[in-house]
Design a protein around this nucleic acid. Structure first.
Lengths: 219, 219
DNA sequence: ACCTGAACACCGTTCAAGT
DNA sequence: ACCTGAACACCGTTCAAGT
């Protein structure tokens, strides 16, 4: 039983007891995404969960885009980019990439929307990029190669997190199993079942990309 | 002027001249996505473009999910996985990955939806996986490593295509430019401007991942 | 300052009724 | 077989009116 249940007896214009504000709205939004997926994150549903009207939410977040930026800022707080000033580049990249992906696996359904969200509205995201860039620079990378490397890693991270949101039976060939003997055999030979499969693929790809990047920093 | 403009004078129940059917619906859906982005691909809008009611579209595709599977099957036809039976694995992977990404950059806004769509409904997608798996197997890869490698590459491909859909100014730091000296400098030092930036990051990442995978097939 | 209530222009989906 | 028309339960967004 939540204190924010809809109270139909409240008269119009009467303020609510708990000030909604950005903080409470963002918190509730993350709660909804965690429990019911990103398709459940609607202004209307959020307002319902807060016990107010959709128009009241719009009074704080002037658009759904702004609401998503609040969520982005909140989520990026979980990404750990602290290793770049203490560890060698490869180890720092490993830690950063894992925590980055973990955050988006935990809030998986938000990936496609946050991956294309401008970062200017999220100071925390900018600080993360600054840390990663410093790691590359400290390792002797030339300025003009750094952003491409970061974008490539981030693409892999987002793609992997996206993959982790796919249904477990995404590779189920259905009635066409007979036409894919090799791939079907490879599917059955996999070491890690269910949810762990996506993790294993991420680990393998991350090691490959880091090794490949650090072996050929000239692009 | 399209022949499919809405004809309000047609009486109810009267069949249309051009049979809509799966083929015409899919064609129109791709047209809409190419011209107006994936957010414009709605059953209602599609019906409007076809000059019928939304219910008429539902008569063929019983849900939006089914419509998207038709689109998936159509789009995957553009992915070239033919190189795996004629070229060395690394070169075949390069060709496949580039054509795969090109297809989804061309139909960019569909990535987040198709990336998590079960493949059982798309025979063409299954055939593609079979070709890639055969390429790995022919190169001597053990069965249990193949799927993870494919998934890792695919995650990077989807992530890169997703990145290509991001607004050009996604890295614009806005009022916080002063707080990111290193990253800001790296942004200005990039060799490739605008749309080419995403391509460059993809190329660098692809070479890194292929090199990394083929150097350590044991994962 | 902040909310309600009502409106507007949309969605996807279902289904009886028509031809 | 295939479509229309109407309905249902939703969206995001705006805005006058209330306190």
């Amino acid at each position: 039983m939540d204190a924010n249940t809809n109270d139909a007896s409240r008269r119009r214009g009467e303020p609510r007891d708990g000030v909604p504000g950005r903080q409470m709205i963002t918190r509730k939004a993350l709660e909804i995404v965690s429990e019911h997926g990103h398709e459940a994150l609607t202004i209307s549903g959020l307002a319902r969960a807060l016990g107010v009207t959709p128009a009241a939410v719009h009074n704080h977040a002037s658009s759904k885009q702004e609401l998503l930026q609040w969520v982005q800022e909140e989520i990026m707080a979980g990404v750990d980019a602290s290793a770049f000033c203490e560890l060698p580049l490869d180890e720092a990249l490993r830690r950063w990439a894992r925590s980055y992906r973990d955050v988006f696996v935990h809030h998986a359904p938000l990936i496609p929307v946050i991956a294309v969200l401008p970062v200017g509205g999220s100071p925390r995201t900018l600080r993360m990029y600054e840390s990663v860039a410093r790691g590359f620079a400290a390792a002797g990378w030339p300025d003009e190669e750094i952003v491409d490397a970061i974008v490539a890693l981030e693409s892999f991270i987002f793609g992997s997190a996206l993959d982790a949101t796919a249904p477990l039976d995404i590779f189920d060939p259905g009635p066409h199993a007979a036409s894919i003997p090799t791939f079907g055999g490879a599917l059955r030979a996999r070491r890690h079942p269910g949810r762990q499969a996506a993790d294993a693929a991420f680990q393998q790809g991350l090691e490959a990309m880091i090794a490949g990047l650090l072996a050929a920093p000239a692009g």
